[in-house]
Design a protein around this nucleic acid. Structure first.
Length: 218
DNA sequence: TGCCAGGCCCTCTTTAGGGCCTT
């Protein structure tokens, strides 16, 4: 089975930096990072700046540290997205506030002429954090990193730094699910399908949802 | 930050409004 080792499932954590809030407003991606997680560990990573020709506003330059100057020598977005498609082929996805990254993922893949990969379903660490950690001060990535004492290398709002923090948050969630629900069948606490089931479940139904999954996979 | 969007959650809800999260 592709991307299933004898142990567990591979999940790709992704993060985009962009020129604005959405492709419908003319915004394009400026950088992408992908971190592969398997068996409770980070196993591989990919990152690249990407050139689209779209101007980066001053506020975004200041926020991300990605300048128009830096992007002039970056590889074309289409090239980068084809590499990302190959790197994530057959692997389900996770992002922090996935509704944001999903729109750019679809827009940039379409521009690169890449067909949609049916494996590329998104799970969202914001939705999951609201359910698993209701006592967190808020569910911004930076706040959760401090709240859970997650390692942070590099500057916030760069793609690889944020993707790494999100990957560590995912690992923490997998670990906590395993500890809170020791009756889950082997590896289920790390499965992408569990994340997708939980992220849409109302808080008061979480326990019932997990019990149902335990019975289904037993 | 320019105060611009989309999808989701919560509630004094469902014939709605406000807040969160992402760049």
């Amino acid at each position: 089975m592709p991307h299933m080792t004898s142990h567990g499932q591979t999940i790709a954590v992704i993060d985009f930096e962009t020129t604005g809030m959405g492709p419908h407003m003319g915004a394009r991606a400026t950088e992408i990072a992908v971190v592969l997680v398997r068996d409770g560990a980070i196993v591989d990573q990919y990152q690249n700046l990407m050139y689209t020709g779209v101007w980066v506003p001053p506020f975004i330059e200041q926020l991300t540290g990605i300048s128009n100057e830096m992007l002039r020598t970056a590889p074309p977005a289409e090239t980068v997205m084809r590499e990302v498609a190959a790197f994530t082929a057959g692997v389900p996805l996770v992002a922090h506030n996935a509704s944001f990254d999903r729109t750019f993922w679809h827009a940039e893949m379409a521009r690169a002429g890449m067909p949609a990969d049916p494996a590329h379903e998104f799970a969202c660490t914001v939705l999951l954090s609201r359910r698993l950690y209701p006592d967190a001060p808020d569910h911004k990535l930076g706040t959760l990193a401090r709240h859970h004492h997650l390692p942070r290398d590099g500057r916030a709002h760069r793609a690889m730094s944020d993707a790494m923090v999100t990957a560590h948050l995912l690992l923490r969630m997998q670990e906590d699910l395993g500890e809170r629900h020791p009756d889950l069948p082997a590896h289920t606490h790390r499965s992408h399908s569990l994340l997708c089931a939980l992220q849409r479940t109302p808080k008061h139904q979480l326990q019932r949802c997990i019990e149902r999954l335990c019975r289904a996979e037993a």
